[in-house]
């Protein structure tokens, strides 16, 4: 995987990768965990899990981007 040599031009690639994957990761996190929370709410007849899921999803998405590109 990281056997691929790092050329100077790959720095630009990393930066752009990060830029583009921030919104889509956050969105995906929200969609997945928000959706999961929503399903849970419907099943249990509650309304707490949907917002929790959305927040969790955003946090996870942000964490993912941070771990992948933040360092």
């Amino acid at each position: 995987m990281s056997a691929q040599e790092r050329r100077p031009e790959n720095d630009g690639r990393d930066f752009a990768d990060a830029m583009w994957s921030v919104p889509s990761s956050l969105l995906a996190g929200m969609a997945i965990y928000g959706g999961l929370g929503w399903l849970l709410d419907r099943w249990l007849g509650m309304s707490a899990f949907f917002p929790i899921g959305v927040v969790l999803g955003v946090v996870l998405g942000g964490y993912l981007v941070y771990r992948k590109f933040g360092r």
Binding site: S24, S25, L27, A28, A31, I32, G57, L60, L64
Partner: peptide
């Protein structure tokens, strides 16, 4: 376990 679904959705559908 938590992140894999996010990656999948982000790469395969949202992108």
């Amino acid at each position: 376990f938590l992140l894999a679904p996010i990656e999948f959705l982000s790469n395969m559908i949202i992108a």
